[in-house]
Design a binder for these strands. Structure first.
Lengths: 148, 148
DNA sequence: TATTGTTATACTCTATAACTATA
DNA sequence: TATAGTTATAGAGTATAACAATA
């Protein structure tokens, strides 16, 4: 069926000079490759982000993890439910605050995180192959200044 | 209610060094400001993109516009319906191919495009204020090489 | 056979409002 | 009063499959 839009074509008129549009295109290309890299793991952006942050701060509260990732409280619930049902993350009562839930990785969660990390690192290498080390640093630096 | 996630905080552990994550953050920041800039116009990313491309290539076919923007045929329908119902865009029979529809801006469409362009240009100036002209060029160049 | 526009459908991410139980 | 987690719901973008009309 040769469907639309896998690779948008070049002529996008005035849009091409807008940083916002260039960001959309670049992010979209990364997302596509991200999904490909994680094929078969049933993992997605948001799930990976949560695993990565919990690994770096075991026992962090669910809301705090969401805050750092820019995910709203209401949207964290289903995501952590999913990770919890898959036994990648555990919710335990937080000490000192009976409202809060502290998050921990299970051994399976650690393993999944490592698998994803390896695949994502490989994907980034591939996407950034045309860039020199100085250019990569520049890119990360500019993006970080745009949105810390 | 001091809700979550308007401004994600800094400590995102290993994510912070991933280009994919930096792109997501930067794009997300741009999107938020984009929506703010276009408040009251009932315009969105995709609608603006279509207007901009049709303006630069009047009579282009609906599918071709979608192809250039990375929007699938199936998803173009509702978008062009919306623009058409709002009298910003007209669908006419394409000459030489009775399957295809050629798109044209109405005068209202032209005016709306100009309004959006002005607001978006202002927004980009604001977002890029901390960057030197050389840095802005570098950013656009790197992003374009990442996803032409 | 392939392509154009279309319908129907589903998934992901994001957003808001309101509830509960704690603080 | 405010916060943590939750539920319900909705909008927007993106994806696939299948159909009719046309090429």
């Amino acid at each position: 069926m040769r469907d639309n839009a896998e690779r948008p074509s070049d002529d996008v008129g005035i849009l091409g000079e807008l940083v916002g549009y260039r960001l959309k295109r670049a992010y979209s290309a990364f997302l596509t490759d991200f999904a490909r890299a994680l094929a078969g793991t049933q993992m997605r952006q948001a799930l990976f982000g949560i695993l990565a942050l919990v690994a770096g701060d075991p026992g962090a509260k669910q809301g705090e993890i969401g805050r750092r990732l820019g995910i709203k409280r209401a949207n964290m619930v289903a995501l952590v439910n999913e990770l919890s049902e898959r036994r990648l993350v555990e919710r335990r009562a937080a000490n000192g605050d009976r409202r809060a839930l502290a998050l921990y990785l299970t051994p399976e969660g650690e393993a999944m995180l490592e698998l994803c990390r390896a695949r994502i690192a490989k994907q980034e290498q591939k996407m950034l192959a045309p860039f020199s080390p100085a250019e990569r640093r520049m890119l990360v630096d500019l993006l970080t200044r745009l949105a810390p």
